[in-house]
Each structure stands twice: as C-alpha cells, then as structure tokens.
Design a protein around this nucleic acid. Structure first.
Lengths: 131, 131, 131, 131
DNA sequence: GTGGTCTAGACCACT
DNA sequence: GTGGTCTAGACCACG
C-alpha cells in the first residue's frame, strides 16, 4: 500500500494523503483494523516532512476515519457504506476533469477517449510502483 | 459581458476571472480581437481591487490567451487550438480523475460511467450560466 | 520609405518611430530637406493612433532632427556626422542582443551564426515590404 | 548570493531580479535544486516590498525557471537547455539588432563587426560583475 | 519558517 | 482613456 504523492501539485500534500486514505478504505484495500504505514515510514519514503503526514493522520482521526491505537499506530476505524462513498469520493475529480473538457470545447467522445487514455496511464503507473 | 465574482469563495478572485475569461473564449462569447472590460471597469463594478483584475489579465497574457494592445486594453489573442494543445491542457485533470478512480478500485466501465455523469452535470451547469 | 511598426513590442510605438527616423537619416535613406510621410499617412497605414505619430515627430523636432515647415510637413534638418552616428545608433540593440547571447551561454561562433540568420530574415522581410 | 538592485533604474525592480536570477543560473552560480533567498529576506535586505520580490519569483516559476517547494521556498528547476530553446530565446533580440543594422544601411560585414564588439563589451561587463 | 492573496492608494507611461 | 509598477500592511495556507 503506497501513497502517490506529488509535492509540486497544487493540492496540499496533507490533502493528498487524507484523500488517498479515504479512497483506499472505500475501495476495500484498507479494511477495519488494518494499520496504516507509520508517519516516519511515509515521510522517509516520499521525502516529505513528518509533520505533514502527522497532520493528515490527525485530521483523519478527528473525522473518525482512523483510530489511534497506543503502541500500534493508526488503524482504520469501523467500515462505512462504501458503494455510496465511492461515488462521493470520485465525483469532485470527475467534475473537474469534465469541466476542463467542456471548457476546451471537447465533445463527449473526445473527452471519454482522453479519459480512457488517462486510465491506461494510471493503470500502468500503479503496476510500475508495485515492483 | 459580465464576470461572476464571489469574493468569499475559496478560489482566489484572480483565478475566478482567468477561468471565466477562458470559458467565455471557449464558448465563443469572446472571439479573437474582442477587447475585454477594462481593469478599472471590472474593479469598480465588483468592488474589488484593480490590482487583482490586473493580475488576472496579466496571467492570461502570459499564457497567450490575451494580448495587451497599448492604449486599447486587453484583446483576445489569436486562437491556436491545436488538437495537441487541447490534449496537453486536458491531461492533468484527466489523470487525477483516473487516479482517483483507480484508487477507489473502480473498473474501467464504472469509471467511465461516473465520468459521463460528470460531463452531463457540467454541460447542464454551463447552460444554466448562459441564461 | 516605410516604417516597421510592431504594436505588440515592448518598446513604445513612438520610440520605434523616432529610432527608425534617426536610422534612416544616418543611413542616408533620408537626406536634409526630405519630407517625411505625413502623420495621417503613417497612422492609417499602420493602424495606429495619429497622436502617437505626432508625438514622435514632435520629439524629433525638439531634438533638432526634424524641422516643421508650414504647408509642407516635417522635413529632415541639417545633416550630422553619420559615420559616428551609425555606431551610436546601432550599439544599444547590438549590446542587448549580445547580452542575451551571453546569458544563454552561447559562445562567439554560435552567437554570430544566429545574428547572421537574423540579418538574412530582416533582409528578406524588407524586400517583401517593398513589393 | 546577492542581488544588485537599483530602485531608481528605469527597468522595474521585479525585472532586475528575474534577469539576475536567470544570469546566475546561466553562469552556474545557481544550479538545479538550489534554493533562492526567501522573499522576505530579499525584501528586508534591499528595503523593497515583499510583493515585488514575490512577483519576480512568480514570473520565473511561470517561465519554468523556478519551482515552488512548499515550506522550502523557490528552487531552481531542472534545466532543459535544448539548443532549440536557446535559439527561440535569442532570436527576438537578434532580429531587432539585425533590423537596426539594416535600417542604418550597414552591410553584413559591418553589422557583424559591430556585433562582435558588443559581444566583447558584454563579456567584459560580466567579468567585472563577477568580482 | 515558506509563499499566496488581497486592499487602498499612489505615480508613471502610452495612446 | 488604457495597463504597469510599487508601497505598506494585513491575513491565510502550508510544512
């Protein structure tokens, strides 16, 4: 289970982490009781500030997504209704991609073609990272 | 031609302006050679600072969307809408949407279905704004 | 005798005119007593504001380069020492080109090669305009 | 690493900064990954407004010269100095120098001779500044 | 600690 | 009339 961090992205790093944790839970890659990678591990692995990771985990704890277990670390809290979660979590990104396509005057077919390309790229990337 | 400014929004005012100008151009409401409302006009009309408007116009000039014509104002630049340009502009948003879909464990069909919904929503939004 | 005006250039239009008039005189294309194209002609031909042309001519008159003759227009004033003038007039542009080349880390040969290309382009342009 | 700021110069302060940063990079005093002096530091040190410095850094970021690293500051971006890039960057200045030469009636040899002089001057200037 | 955004108001250059 | 530049000072987000 690896985070995909882009330090130069316009979205804050802590936001990238919280969003991805939520998505991993919704997709079932993280289940209730699973422990998350430690703050130190993540910070070292991605060369980012531990405070940033800690902040992300804290926010997830405050939202009730994670629970802090002494001596263990952060673990995934009780599972929620994932079907609906998935849509809710996916829509913002979908909408912004759709908006961009619309502003560029792309028609439906062109937009979907590009999106399919992006899916392919993403799929390949994740395989590469798994090595 | 009026901008829709929300000073309390989390997206910076200058960004709201740049986005809308791009949208106006993409939709054909602004065509090559058209002059934009002057910095002062916009600033007075929306009770915002001229610098803010100026910054927005400036960025659009640097992106090649507008051209500054001395003593005239900002003018819509020649549109060089290569297919390649469009792809380059669209890919970042497409990739982030694809990443979200992938991390949620959606398969290709589900992802595209959500994307089509987003396209529909965006389409309707733009029609509403045109009223 | 045609001016080469670039309204979108960063150097003001009136400056472009004054500089070119001086160069034409230094090169002998304009001699003492020659009349310059009228403000109206220039303004119409290049689609610029007559006030701008007038301002340029006025500044040249104040510098003693031109003389205003009633009913005739602006005529070239007494001739100056052109050999030295040429160098003085040419150096600023040469220096800025040299500076750019230097900042880009080009060596002497590369810089001169580019400059020769530019000379060729300029030469061809002027032939085209003469048609 | 210190900027040389002349507030009374006719060239805008932000431009003085952008030019110098580019020069530092071209000369190797700043290398990929180096962090620049912070906006506040520069502003305090030269008694100028932070916004002015910020604007300069911003423009360099948009040009791809710098990269903004969150919580770290501005960092020199990867240098992709294609020969083609260089030509594109150099040509405008070359063309305007060539135009001047042409309008002064200089032939190719004379023009190149002047350009070589300018190169020499520029070269000496840069050595002087390096002291 | 870093940069980003905005305001209010001034002065300048160009057309 | 147009936009450009700068100042002084405030508040925010991120790491």
């Amino acid at each position: 289970m690896n985070y995909d961090i882009h330090p130069s992205s316009s979205t804050p790093i802590f936001r990238q982490i919280t969003d991805q944790v939520k998505r991993f839970i919704a997709s079932g890659q993280l289940k209730t009781g699973d422990t998350l990678p430690s703050v130190r591990t993540v910070a070292l692995h991605h060369a980012i500030n531990p405070m940033t990771v800690s902040k992300a985990y804290n926010m997830l704890e405050m939202e009730g997504v994670l629970v802090r277990m002494r001596g263990v670390g952060m673990v995934v809290a009780e599972r929620r209704n994932t079907a609906r979660d998935k849509t809710n979590l996916a829509m913002p990104a979908m909408l912004s991609a759709a908006q961009v396509a619309h502003q560029l005057g792309l028609d439906k077919e062109q937009a979907i073609k590009l999106f399919e390309q992006a899916l392919k790229v993403t799929h390949n990337e994740s395989k590469k990272n798994a090595d």
